[in-house]
Design a protein around this nucleic acid. Structure first.
Lengths: 211, 211
DNA sequence: ACCTGAACACCGTTCAAGT
DNA sequence: ACCTGAACACCGTTCAAGT
């Protein structure tokens, strides 16, 4: 029987690709199939599924840093946060996995360093920069966790979903829900990315130090 | 054999209690055990696990509204967001479940209505109120999803975890990571709730309409 | 040294058989 | 009408047996 030769890097490569294509439904059985090897062979090179997902997460974080244009602090931070959100959007379970371990991985460290240094450029001292950094991460990664289930739908079905939610608000009793019915057309309007862009802008407005 | 009489309300009650005590590790087998009935009997009264979790989520949302003090729009919104985050902190999987369905449940609707009406009090028109509403939800629920794994630890172990993360940043090479080492003492400082409070304050600063 | 394959524990869910 | 219990599919993980 042709026993496949596996190595850790090849496994993480394939896992990254698989996560990108199936997101939450990532499974070791499927990974084994793609590698052309028995699923249990993976355990030779990786302690368990969560260690593997952490390695995938780090690879995704490292990718966020490539091809970053020049610009002022706010535009760099904005780009990084949008990229971060998109990365977590395909695999929200990564967030939990990544965040339950010390931040020792190069990709994540590079992202943190860049964000902190841009916030320093903005005029924040290290203490405020750290707090602003946490605020940005919470919003970007958190927003991804929230939107992931709808993001996984096909575009048309996604829009249908949002439309039905808007309709649900519009059809409420205006006497009991005056604010909701008044805002119905604007609730879940546009794309989730639009809504995130607005939230991030408001947060950055609040973060900017008093001049 | 004494066949237990179950009804939907009793099941949702028990499920709510179980989610509160075991969080993510909620299981139908355990719920059946607590009800003193066969786990599969639950399927008589509830379509599947996700419908059950949605009912639990709505109950938690309804609870957020009780005993709300009087106050200006910002303090009410702040309290509601903190409560929302705490509710999702014990069961982050609820967020995904709740958000994949139209917002038709009374508890969630009441929360939305109150937040929108407070944002109206703040001077936002319905369109901006809707966008601000989404921003607040993303931050509050998202932050919970992010912090949930560490929040599940015992307090001492949680603090040990954060301390080890701070140490990891402090021990980086200052030449390669100048901003991270400078901010090391402030990264993951205090409690996750402190960090959320800061993030929420900055977002509310940004949301407040220009006067 | 590394892979295979049987096996196990766990979990959501279905369905025929009971009362 | 409602519950029980056997059964199934799926998934992460372990471990003895292969080469």
């Amino acid at each position: 029987v042709g026993a496949k030769r596996l190595d850790r890097e090849q496994i993480v490569d394939a896992a990254t690709e698989l996560v990108a294509s199936v997101g939450e439904r990532f499974t070791l059985a499927e990974l084994g199939r793609r590698l052309g090897a028995d699923p249990t062979a993976i355990y030779r090179h990786v302690r368990d599924k969560s260690e593997l997902l952490r390695a995938v997460g780090d690879r995704l974080h490292a990718e966020l840093m490539v091809g970053l244009p020049r610009g002022d602090w706010r535009s760099i931070v904005t780009i990084l946060c949008h990229r971060l959100r998109n990365a977590h959007l395909v695999a929200p379970s990564l967030a939990a996995t990544v965040r339950s371990e010390p931040p020792r991985q190069p990709g994540e460290l590079a992202l943190t360093e860049r964000l902190l240094s841009e916030l320093g450029r903005a005029g924040l001292d290290p203490h405020d920069a750290a707090r602003a950094y946490h605020a940005l991460i919470e919003l970007a990664v958190g927003s991804a966790a929230l939107d992931a289930s709808v993001a996984a739908l096909a575009p048309e079905e996604r829009e249908r979903t949002y439309a039905s939610w808007r309709r649900a608000y519009a059809n409420l009793d205006p006497a009991q829900y005056p604010a909701s019915t008044a805002a119905a057309a604007a609730l879940y309007a546009g794309t989730a990315d639009d809504r995130f862009a607005y939230a991030l802008d408001r947060l950055l407005d609040g973060i900017r130090p008093a001049v």
